[in-house]
Structure formats: structure tokens, C-alpha cells
């Protein structure tokens, strides 16, 4: 299985994301934001960082890049897409995921190991977890506060679109402790924490993050 990892100007975690893809047993394929070329990949990861320096709004300019327009079109026909941190911001700005990410309520950049409750274990990116499982992965952001209108939050909760929720403290003031959400079809997932930084004992707080990348591999095999 070939999983594309997009690099934008200002991406930081594309190399870690590619490494996580490889450790999960898939082939990482570097993709460049400025090209209309998805290289026939089977899934796409939008990594963390500060694309375009977070100018205008985090993820706003990257969301209008040529490749992301192709990702939006491909996602509408079922391409699995994972947005991590800045990648989540890009997916919200591109309209693939609902809501928006705004300045942390306490105004500080927050960097720590974070507990997450897996509420959906049937998406393309979380099927290797058990529903109700708690995992620990790093979180690091300054604009990670998930917001949406109350009516939209109610609708998301009603449709079971919250994939992971913060436990053991909310690092950024996100509405209803939401850490990640999914599209209606469960193929597109975005989250602020960084599963790609928790794939090896040597460098991460756990290896809990690997499951995101293993999941998409399993969903492709099953399909």
C-alpha cells in the first residue's frame, strides 16, 4: 500500500509521518503541495507544522494549494485522508471536515503527552483500536482549540463524528474536549494530537500512535 505524505512550505512533521507509515508496513510517497499529482496513492496524510507560516489563519493558504484541491476531490470518492495538527487545520479550512481550530484559550503553546479516548474505532484510520480505549500521544499546538457553532457540535455528537476526545485535561480549551473528528463516511479523519510521534519506544511516550497508520493499511486490505 502506498500512502502519500504532503509537504507544504513550513511543514515540520512530514518526515515523522513518512516514518510512521513505513513502520506500519506501508510505502510512504512524498507529495508536493504545488503539483496536481497524487501519484496514485491509496491514502494521504497531511502532516503537522506551520504551512505558509500560519499566515492569514492556520492552514488557510495551504487549503487552497493545487494538491489539496485534488485531495478534496479524491476524498469525496472515498480516498482515506488523515490530517494531523496543521493537517487537521488544513482539512477544516478546505471544508473536508467541519469546525475550525482557533487560538488556545490560555494563549500558550502547549506541548505534552496527552491522553485520548477513542470514541470511534470504525473509521479508516482508527479501526485497529477498540472503542473506549485510552491512548497516549504527544500534543503540541498554539491554535488547537476546536470550535463550531453549538448546533453544529450537537449535530456532530449526534452523528458520532467525534473520533478522539481529550482525557486527563483539555490542552487548549477545545469545545467538549474534542481532539479529532471524522467525515460522514469515516474516511477522512483530523486530529490535533500527533500519533506519528508515538510509534517507537525510543522517541515517543508510547507506541499508541502507530494504530492510525496500521488501521488504514487494514482497511485497504479488507476493501
Amino acid at each position: 500500500m502506498r500512502i502519500g505524505v504532503i509537504t507544504f512550505p513550513g511543514s515540520l512533521d512530514d518526515v515523522d509521518a513518512a516514518r510512521a507509515v513505513r513502520l506500519a508496513g506501508a510505502e510512504p510517497v512524498p507529495l508536493w503541495h504545488g503539483e496536481h499529482d497524487l501519484k496514485d496513492v491509496d491514502a494521504v496524510v497531511l502532516p503537522g507544522g506551520f504551512s505558509y507560516g500560519d499566515y492569514l489563519r492556520a492552514g488557510a493558504i495551504a487549503a487552497r494549494s493545487p494538491l489539496v484541491q485534488d485531495v478534496v476531490a479524491a476524498a469525496r470518492t472515498g480516498l482515506p485522508v488523515l490530517g494531523i495538527c496543521n493537517g487537521f487545520q488544513v482539512l477544516c479550512e478546505a471544508g473536508l471536515l467541519p469546525g475550525a481550530l482557533t487560538r488556545n484559550s490560555h494563549l500558550h503553546f502547549r506541548n505534552r503527552d496527552q491522553g485520548l479516548l477513542v470514541e470511534r474505532a470504525d473509521t479508516a484510520w482508527t479501526s485497529s483500536y477498540a472503542q473506549g480505549q485510552t491512548i497516549v500521544v504527544p500534543v503540541k499546538n498554539g491554535e488547537g482549540r476546536y470550535v463550531a457553532a453549538d448546533a453544529d457540535l450537537d449535530r456532530l455528537e449526534g452523528e458520532g463524528r467525534v473520533v478522539v476526545r481529550y482525557v486527563g485535561g483539555n490542552p487548549n480549551g477545545s469545545s467538549r474536549d474534542i481532539a479529532g473528528v471524522t467525515s460522514a463516511d469515516g474516511r477522512v479523519v483530523g486530529l490535533m494530537p500527533h500519533p506519528e510521534h508515538a510509534v517507537e519506544e525510543l522517541t515517543g511516550p508510547s507506541t499508541d500512535g502507530l494504530g492510525f497508520f496500521v488501521s488504514v493499511l487494514q482497511s485497504a486490505v479488507a476493501a
Binding site: 492569514l56 489563519r57 479550512e93 470550535v147 457553532a149
Partner: peptide, 8 residues
Amino acid sequence: TLLANPVI
């Protein structure tokens, strides 16, 4: 569509 995000 660009300068503002109508969601927020």
C-alpha cells in the same frame, strides 16, 4: 472565502 473563515 479566503480573508475570512465563515465558520468562525
